[in-house]
Design a protein around this nucleic acid. Structure first.
Length: 555
RNA sequence: GGCCCCAUGGUCAAUCGGUUAAGACGGGACCCUCUCAAGGUCCAAUGACUGGUUCGACUCCAGUUGGGGUCACCA
């Protein structure tokens, strides 16, 4: 009678290594007390998902705050779903958010001593462990075809039995070694299944770092761990990789909770200590009154690229995500007068247990705060970098005269309560268009929205007067007093109070007078501080515009 | 359907058995004010339901309901 040893050799003749050798190759890490080794391990199946960024942020933050190690691992075992180039894409998008791995997969080559960090390059490791498992009788080749599996499922359905490959339903579980060898030699296709000793009627429990104790049914499924394409399935790859990478904390989506007993079962079978788990709630979206996970297919905001394209500052998104992760973060920011994530103490225990609805409004709020606090020089660089890739016309405009654009960006900025009218870089171009003559000209041609209660001749004479008498290079109140004086000469009240008291003595109030100037120069009834606008535009530009208006009013 | 997770305002949520149930976003009002954006002050708005435990329950327990997840040679 043949032995499992012989079976293992027949299955994996090319594998000569041992688990002991792997243990020696990937030694226990020497890290300070409390340091966590975490990892973000996405599949290269497309662009970075907002939920993934959330998980990555938490994973990264924990490693950094405990002076541990943050690993990036590429889980490319599903060759059918792999999208070429998306691994590189993931790394570079994460980098834009400042989330760069201490070790892991990089397009330019792996970094770190615990690699390879791409699962498809770790075949040797998986095979070594699986071969050992076969020798020990804890894994076996299975010869079921998809049709066989389908038949089993149907039979289970008919008998109202629990679905799956387990116990008596596991057709090939109890084949003798000789029978297996015979089939293999006959060329029957096989996969490797893990032989579970679990009892479905018993419970396994573990302490989740976020949720506390979780109790689930024991795993009794003989799951496939090695596919016919020569790659492992997630379950096995996770156990293997996180053991040999010496990960101490697994951060992953909450959808993994139900399969945790499988992983625990395997760690036990291998005699390895299981890491801690932190199952992170998903970010949700309200859809026809129901909550559901953010979906890349249905929701633009599910793809991180959406925020990048719109021109949200990366820090704005990060701060928003952090506020969902730890709701005390927001209060911390307020009392510290700072959004510096790095000095905030993140805590897994403080994470909420149910998935938050993604709130655009709140993102905008944080984003405005971040933009308003960014020093002009820095903001300018960020906006410029965004414009290059997303708005060429805008880029040409700002690049043509960077100093002018920075002055515009700086309006009402360097003060205790700065303006907050941009949530994203894409908001800037439309709001600042009037500063550029060509665009102002278009507004003039389309018709300036002057208050219709004033007739053209009044507007023309008032603006004409202003052209010569507007003050430049003086402080705001002096400047505004100058404006009032000119207004008074045209019978505009110098204060709203005076106007209200005697409306019949005036043509309008200061507000009306200021509005005429505002509309003339900015093409809109709403604009930032007029004094600053005029200082930036400068005397000659203001004169040119007022002349152009005079010409259009009198023709 | 089995199993698991979750449950405080519209949203994010604090409270670790005793509070007038915080705070933030959003909303409303008022103030400031040459408009807007800010800023200031104030207001409205929350414990799913039913039992239990307890002197006392938003808080602990059970059940109900609701929502979410998971049951692959996908991760």
């Amino acid at each position: 009678m043949a032995t499992n040893q012989e079976l293992a050799e027949l299955l994996f003749p090319e594998v000569h290594g041992t688990i002991e050798e792997l243990e020696a190759k990937y030694p226990t890490r020497y890290l300070p007390e409390g340091a966590q080794v975490t990892r973000f391990a996405p599949s290269p199946t497309g662009f970075l998902h907002t939920g993934s960024l959330f998980t990555a942020l938490i994973t990264y933050t924990i490693a950094k705050s405990t002076h541990g190690v943050y690993i990036f691992r590429l889980e490319d075992t599903d060759t059918k779903r792999t999208v070429p180039g998306s691994g590189e894409q993931l790394v570079s998008q994460l980098k834009e958010f400042g989330i760069v791995a201490d070790e892991g997969y990089f397009p330019s080559g792996d970094k770190g001593e615990y690699g390879p960090y791409k699962q498809s390059e770790r075949r040797e490791i998986y095979k070594t462990v699986i071969k050992e498992l076969i020798k020990r009788g804890r894994a076996y080749p299975d010869f079921c075809t998809p049709e066989d599996l389908e038949a089993i499922r149907k039979a289970q359905e008919a008998q109202k039995a629990l679905p799956g490959y387990y116990g008596a339903w596991a057709r090939d579980r109890n084949l003798t070694v000789d029978e297996r060898i015979e089939k293999i030699k006959a060329g029957t296709p096989w996969v490797i299944r893990y032989r579970s000793n679990g009892d479905h009627d018993k419970k396994t429990s573990f302490v989740d770092a976020i949720r506390g104790k979780i109790e689930l049914q024991d795993n009794d499924q003989d799951l496939v761990i090695f596919k016919s394409d020569g790659l492992p399935t997630y379950h096995f790859a996770h156990v293997c990789d996180d053991h040999f990478m010496r990960t101490t904390l697994i951060t992953r989506g909450e959808e993994w909770i139900p399969s945790t007993p499988v992983h625990l079962d395997m760690f036990r079978a291998l005699g390895w200590e299981a890491p801690r788990y932190a199952h992170i709630p998903s970010i949700m979206k309200l859809d026809h009154g129901n909550k559901r996970k953010l979906s890349k297919r249905k929701d633009a905001e599910a793809a991180v690229s959406y925020f990048l394209d719109e021109g949200y500052p990366t820090e704005g998104l990060l701060v928003y995500l952090m506020s969902i992760a730890n709701s005390n973060f927001e209060e911390w920011c307020i009392s510290n007068k700072s959004y510096d994530r790095k000095s905030f103490t993140f805590s897994l225990e403080k994470m909420s247990l149910d998935g938050a609805l993604f709130d655009m409004g709140k993102l905008n709020y944080f984003s405005k705060e971040i933009i308003a606090r960014t020093p002009v020089k820095e903001l300018y660089e960020d906006v410029r970098a965004w414009a290059i890739g997303h708005d060429q016309a805008f880029f040409q405009k700002i690049d043509n005269n960077p100093e002018y654009f920075q002055k515009i960006l700086n309006i009402e900025r360097e003060r205790p309560n700065p303006r907050k009218d941009y949530a994203k870089y894409g908001d800037i171009a439309p709001l600042t268009a009037f500063f550029y003559y060509a665009e102002w000209k278009k507004m003039l041609e389309a018709g300036l929205p002057f208050n219709e209660k004033f007739d053209k001749s009044l507007i023309a004479s008032f603006l004409g007067d202003l052209k010569d008498k507007l003050l430049y290079g003086v402080d705001e109140s002096t400047w505004f007093n100058g404006l009032k004086e000119v207004g008074a000469a045209h019978k505009f009240a110098t204060s709203n109070k005076d106007y209200k008291a005697n409306p019949e003595s005036y043509v309008g109030s200061v507000s009306d007078a200021a509005e005429l100037l505002r509309v003339a120069l900015t093409g809109s009834k709403n604009s930032p501080n007029l004094h600053e606008v005029i200082e930036i535009l400068g005397r000659s530009e203001v004169s040119i515009r007022l002349d152009a208006i005079a010409a259009s009013l009198t023709k």
